[in-house]
Simulated assay, not measured.
Amino acid sequence: MRKIKKKHKAMYAPMDDLVTYRALPTREVEYIDPFLFLNHHGPQVYKPGNRGLPFGPHPHRGFETLTFILDGDIMHQDTGGGKDVIEAGGVQWMTAGSGLIHAEVSSDKFKKEGGPLEILQLWFNLPAKYKMTEPRYIGLQKDKIPVVTLDNGKVKVNVVSGSWGEVQAPIQSLSDIHMVSIEMQKGGHFIYNIPTERNIFFYVVRGSVKVNGETADKLTLVEFEHEGKEVKVEATEDAYILFGHALPYNEPVVSHGPFVMNTEQEIREAFRDYQMGKIGRWEG
């Protein structure tokens, strides 16, 4: 089995009235190459007449984002022309690449009616050769995401990017990042093999599981060594996890706010390009 290096508890880091836990980066772990950042918003219930999500127009360059909408919705708009509302069970994948400005807010319907909200946003680094690639956006509702059912229906794997076994995901990343979300009923289990050279991303969103013999409760990020291939998971209560893997880039990571590049000079250039309108001009 793949050896566990350490388990990290997500830090409480609220944003205005938005309940938020940050699993990456924390004081204990900076990143798991190429997985850079994970914010877990909610779970919480918004009252009718709320302000919704606080993520108004802001720029990005040099990385990709994957957003899981577990409850509530997100209205996305960007300067590359992407615009839609993704509802519970759906995902959004955005390649910032050379740069864009986007906003992630709640729909008018959600702000008017309120309701439960739980959203996770994961950032992936882009290797140097793809840092300045053309931006793109993909929004998928729940019914567009393939589901693999295991253990007599006790485990449901939502295949978001890359593949799971023979099942190809609707999103194929530039740098072969494989990501799924997994819904598990108590007692459900699965085994998955991942080549030793690839880094694993494993985060428990809800419930509790045993992974390779160790207990991991909700809000826990599990960091693995490069030793062994097998990942064995059993749900000790109903659970929901994010699970993925990718080859590490082993490149310098220099990040500042909304930009992730390889050098300080490239960060300065990103800020300059943003100020000059080269990353896009917001017309929302």
Rank of each mutant, 00 (worst) to 15 (best):
E113C: 10
V254L: 10
G165D: 09
Y46P: 06
A216S: 08
Q141Y: 08
E87M: 13
M132T: 15
E223T: 04
K229N: 12
P170G: 01
S175P: 01
V204Y: 01
V209Y: 10
T133M: 15
S173G: 03
L126Q: 06
P195K: 06
V233P: 02
F63V: 00
H189F: 08
G188D: 03
A235H: 01
G89P: 10
I138Q: 09
Q185N: 14
I241E: 04
D217E: 06
A169I: 03
G187T: 04
E30Y: 15
K129Q: 14
L126C: 10
F224N: 11
R61G: 04
F202I: 03
H102S: 05
I200N: 12
T20A: 06
P59E: 00
D108Y: 02
S106F: 03
L53M: 12
Y21D: 02
T67W: 04
E214I: 05
T26R: 07
K111T: 05
F190L: 12
Y192I: 09
H189I: 04
N125M: 03
I171Y: 02
R2C: 02
H8C: 10
F271G: 02
K6T: 14
H60S: 00
V147D: 05
T26Y: 04
E223V: 09
E264Q: 08
A23Y: 07
A103Y: 11
G213W: 03
K142Y: 12
I4W: 02
E214A: 06
V180A: 12
G82R: 09
K9I: 00
D16V: 14
T65C: 04
N250L: 11
V85G: 09
N39F: 03
I191M: 14
I138G: 01
K278C: 15
A235K: 00
V91M: 00
G257A: 12
Q185E: 15
Q185M: 09
T79L: 09
Q92W: 04
R51Y: 10
V45Q: 14
Y274P: 04
G213A: 02
F259P: 01
H41Y: 09
M261V: 00
M184L: 07
Q265W: 08
G42V: 08
F124H: 10
A270V: 07
M261C: 02
G52P: 05
V211Q: 08
G162C: 03
D84S: 15
L150K: 08
P34C: 06
F55H: 12
L70N: 12
K5L: 08
S106R: 05
D143I: 08
L247V: 11
V205L: 06
R51C: 09
G90C: 01
E283S: 15
S208P: 02
